[in-house]
Computed example of a mutant assay.
Amino acid sequence: MTDGGQAAVAARVPGAGALGLVAPPVGSVVPGPLLADPGWTAERVAELGQRYRSDDRRVLATVWWYSLSSVLVTPPLAGLATGVPLSPRLPDLSLTLLAGGTPVAAVSGAPWGDVAAELRETLEAVIGAVAEAGAVRPAPLWAIATDSIANRLLALGRALGDVGAVTALAGPLAAAVGAPLPAPRYVDVGPRAVRFTQRASCCLLYRLPHEPTCTSCPRRTPFERQVLLEDTAERIG
Rank of each mutant, 00 (worst) to 15 (best):
S54G: 02
G4M: 06
E224A: 15
L228W: 03
R152M: 11
P222I: 04
E230G: 15
S69N: 12
G109R: 00
R199Y: 06
D188R: 08
T215I: 13
N151M: 14
T74P: 11
V107G: 13
G171K: 07
S201A: 15
A159K: 00
A145G: 06
G128Y: 01
W40Y: 08
A176C: 10
M1I: 08
L60Q: 06
P14G: 03
G20A: 12
V115D: 10
L35K: 04
A179E: 14
V71G: 10
L72D: 07
T82K: 07
P24Y: 02
L77E: 03
E224D: 15
W64V: 10
W40R: 02
V9T: 01
A8H: 02
L141Y: 00
R53H: 15
L229A: 10
W64E: 15
L160N: 00
C217H: 01
L90K: 06
A18H: 06
A159H: 00
T232V: 15
C202F: 06
A8V: 01
S54P: 05
G190K: 05
Y52K: 02
L35Y: 03
A168M: 07
T41F: 05
I149M: 11
G15L: 01
G17C: 11
T62A: 12
A42L: 09
G83S: 06
G100K: 14
L205R: 14
F196R: 00
A61Q: 08
R51Y: 12
A233T: 00
L93H: 04
L156F: 02
V22W: 00
P140C: 05
A46W: 04
E121Q: 14
T167S: 04
G17K: 00
A106P: 08
A159P: 03
G190C: 13
R89I: 00
V107H: 04
L86D: 05
F223H: 12
V30D: 04
Q6T: 02
L229D: 10
P111Y: 07
A175F: 07
N151C: 14
A174K: 03
G109P: 10
T96E: 13
V187A: 14
T62M: 13
R58T: 13
A105F: 11
R89E: 09
V26K: 07
L119I: 07
Q226H: 14
L98A: 13
G100E: 15
R235D: 06
A200H: 08
G83Y: 06
S28G: 12
V166F: 00
R225A: 12
Q226F: 14
L228D: 12
P172G: 03
A99E: 15
Q6S: 11
L123M: 09
P91A: 09
G17E: 11
R137M: 11
R57S: 15
A139N: 09
P103S: 11
I144M: 13
S54F: 03
A129E: 10
A168N: 04
R89S: 13
G161E: 02
R89Y: 02
P24H: 01
Q6G: 13
G20M: 12
E43K: 02
L95D: 09
C203M: 11
G39C: 08
P184C: 09
R199Q: 10
L90S: 09
G17A: 15
T167N: 04
V45T: 01
